[in-house]
Design a protein around this nucleic acid. Structure first.
Lengths: 302, 302
DNA sequence: AACTGTTGATTAAATAAATTTATAAAAATA
DNA sequence: TATTTTTATAAATTTATTTAATCAACAGTT
């Protein structure tokens, strides 16, 4: 009879493609892992891995088996978590992924309160782009994700908890810096710099400008912080979301922000969770808490 | 760490609501099962079962956990079966459920060939009504089912492999017994007897008559064989499917069959299988074989 | 009240199984 | 040729599991 141990070992080898590393990641000896997998292959009646002294390959049937194995592991994790759904809320370990254009601005807003009010919560935060986030939430590597909509999250629950606008950012001396708002026409003539391909904020910003692609003249960077540094030194302008304003703009006398004429909200922020995630209540509570802290931040800065 | 053994034990208690019986069905001592389940509850952090000396109840959270456990068991079974998909076809054990209005007429047609050509195949046949069939195929108790369409098989693959008409059956002396075919109007005036509630053939037969319910005058029975005995003794008439004709009509001089004017096919027969069933190829092969044998039967009786 | 037959829980000895450590074998590398 | 890196194997040890016997609680019965 195939055991969960064997399944865990097999998944570790799939990850590492290396028996010794897999054994380490399972905290057992390489010998134990080798034997367990041989036995598993015997029970299955086919090879999972083709292995020699130089490399480990996954056989075609092995690939199918490992997909099932992954599903089983996911369900086992869910089962183990079921107990938490009745215990005290946020009294557990949670892994949450957040996209880079939200993460550094949201965390300082919510973490202090979170740590005060729920000291038993062990948060593991990772910064990832939307596509990785969706993938990892789907396969259970993450308990939840936070990203900006619209984004294709098919098969996942989405809980919108925030909506905000973008601001146009230019250097302090710019002639347009004191305008009450910037029209779309004016925006189009600017030397706009956005994030590199892969960041959803680029797409959302382009959508605000009613553009589908960005011209090659526009520089691109890998973080909003970098973009703002470029703006501060007169190399162009950019768009940043409201929640980044306190950190990136307000402390910096060399740049100015101008609201956009384009009606908002320009992006909506949501949690994504697997529908079967066992303690959705934890996610809902987190969401309410985040929403509240963001509201406090917004009213403070008015 | 929760083990598969614990999951199997828990599912057995769910089935039996009795520790001792569950232990027997798992072929272990009651002590082993008790200990394993206590340990499992400790690991989960909540009670699966409320037990005293008189009864075993499933807790609300336990119900949720057992649902997950059932899914895990299903996936484990699939995983264990994956090896067969590459081995020789029909070289395994299969559990197949068939509705009562197909089972006794299909089996004698297909079993001889099946046992000759695939002696390694271990077939477990059970006779069940459509709703049980769908349920048991869904949860993995059966590898496949054979039923008559139309029927709601949402979430399952359906492979139609046969279509046939009904015949009107009356006693040999009936004035209508020699007609080339029976019109719908004539059919409506007959004292038609159909199967009891729950048999899909009743619904399909009513549909052929363009009726939604059957009047209280119509007797009902639990098997086609019974119905035919009633017909033979002049107690009424009935409809039987083509595949039952050789067994129920041709050997019996006291009854006569008349084709229906209503255009067919009057019922279609299909396999149902879970989409994730690991060796669909076995099902497809079975289906082709069944189809072929039925064709031979049809051409023989012409 | 005492007896009887349930039920699920507990315990200790016997049994089975998995893990570790150490080693082997094969192949690439220096 | 010696060294390193890889997975596989063997024997000893440790760990976990099963069994069989017993317990404790309870519900009927006598």
């Amino acid at each position: 009879m195939i055991s969960l141990k064997q399944i865990r070992y097999a998944l570790a080898v799939e990850r590492t493609l290396h028996f010794k590393k897999a054994a380490e990641s399972c905290a057992v000896s390489q010998s134990a892992l080798s034997t367990a997998l041989s036995e598993m292959e015997k029970q299955l009646g086919f090879q999972l891995f083709e292995r020699n002294n130089k490399q480990v390959l996954i056989t075609p049937l092995g690939k199918q088996a490992l997909e099932k194995a992954q599903e089983i592991k996911l369900l086992m994790d869910d089962l183990a978590r079921l107990g938490e759904s009745q215990g005290e809320l946020l009294h557990t370990t949670m892994s949450i992924g957040i996209i880079p254009t939200i993460c550094p601005y949201l965390l300082p807003v919510v973490l202090p309160t979170l740590q005060n009010e729920y000291p038993a919560l062990q948060l593991h935060i990772s910064e990832e782009q939307s596509h990785e986030l969706v993938e990892k939430v789907r396969n259970g590597d993450l308990d939840a994700g936070i990203l900006a909509l619209p984004y294709d999250c098919e098969g996942l629950l989405t809980f919108k908890f925030w909506a905000e606008n973008f601001f146009w950012i230019t250097h302090a001396g710019d002639a347009l810096a004191d305008k009450p708002q910037l029209s779309n026409d004016e925006l189009d003539t600017q030397r706009l710099m956005l994030l590199k391909e892969g960041h959803c904020l680029k797409d959302h910003a382009l959508s605000v400008c009613h553009l589908s692609t960005i011209s090659e003249h526009h520089l691109s960077a890998t973080s909003l912080n970098t973009l703002v540094q470029l703006v501060a030194n007169g190399l162009g302008t950019t768009l940043i979301p409201e929640m980044a304003v306190p950190q990136l703009v307000e402390e910096n006398p060399k740049i100015a922000k101008v609201p956009l004429a384009e009606p908002g909200p320009h992006r909506e922020i949501a949690f994504i969770v697997r529908p079967n995630y066992p303690s959705i209540k934890n996610i809902e509570l987190l969401m309410q808490l985040f929403q509240h802290e963001l509201q406090v931040l917004r009213s403070d800065s008015k």
